[in-house]
Design a binder for these strands. Structure first.
Lengths: 155, 155
DNA sequence: TCTATTTAGTTGCATTTGTGACGATCTTTT
DNA sequence: AAAAGATCGTCACAAATGCAACTAAATAGA
């Protein structure tokens, strides 16, 4: 498992032990698995899925609010909204008080898709927790919480 | 903290609690911080940094091996190698037994850069652990290990 | 009230990434 | 030993992403 390291002066960095690398790889692997589900079933991209999930959770939001809540860039949201609109999964309503903003809301079809996808998500997570074991799952959540607390407050 | 949820039939999915989402966001945040260091100091991209780190750790590898070890796509590695070669941080040696493969190895300059970057990486991690606290760090590592054990073996 | 600044969302452009095809080389099969 | 298949690395092309400029609309300041 441990490859031969380089015989040099300074501290050797073992990539497989380096937290940013491990996190990236884990996130990649775990997300990819779930992503392949909604991609294969619905042809959804990740930004589209996130937008759908956010709207499903909150009911009606502006594009900016979706971005803020799901940490996506303006343009990503914009394109995802466009795409979901074309599927007739959401509709836009111009805010009459502030006519720059539009309120995005799932259509019945969109809501239906959301239900199915949310169920898939729950199942995925349930299975994941089962495989991690009670202990692993607990540690993972705790570790993530610690990380979130860290980067949530600047620096 | 808990937003108002949608009054619908099925299980509501709370995105901020969903593991794939949390993992992604955490990985993104943590990587970005470190990435900005090597980007600002050396103008390195992430694939370049990973390639450098892998070669620094193992000494001499083929492009394919780098990709396998650091989970990067062929073409990403190919481009990173090209770029590092242009900086004169690595050199290629054609394998005489199998002339398709090339063995990549850091030059003295490359090794020097690697030393500095590895040190930066260690410092970053040390600071991260300090901020997470002993407990948080321990949980994070344990959680990651559980995840790795999960996805390492197929399925 | 008129101007300057800010905000919401979209679009064009440059950069990055992935996909598929490719030439070259090696391996396997027949 | 000839043909078929696999593997290594690269390239051309297409898709996804981010950045900056933009329009439209609201707000703040003079």
């Amino acid at each position: 498992m441990t490859g031969k390291q380089n015989e040099e002066a300074a501290p050797p960095l073992v990539l497989e032990d380096f937290i940013p690398y491990r996190l990236n790889k884990a996130a990649e692997a775990i997300s990819r698995r779930f992503a392949s589900q909604y991609r294969d079933e619905y042809g959804l991209t990740r930004p589209e899925w996130r937008t759908l999930a956010t709207l499903g959770q909150f009911g009606a939001l502006s594009a900016t609010a979706i971005g803020a809540h799901s940490s996506m860039h303006k343009t990503k949201v914009s394109r995802a909204v466009f795409s979901l609109e074309q599927r007739h999964w959401l509709k836009r309503k111009r805010d009459e008080a502030d006519r720059r903003t539009e309120h995005l809301e799932l259509t019945p079809a969109g809501r239906k898709a959301y239900q199915l996808l949310a169920t898939m998500a729950h199942n995925y997570e349930t299975e994941l927790f089962a495989r991690l074991g009670e202990r692993g799952a607990k540690e993972l959540k705790a570790g993530l919480s610690a990380l979130e607390a860290y980067y949530r407050q600047g620096r």
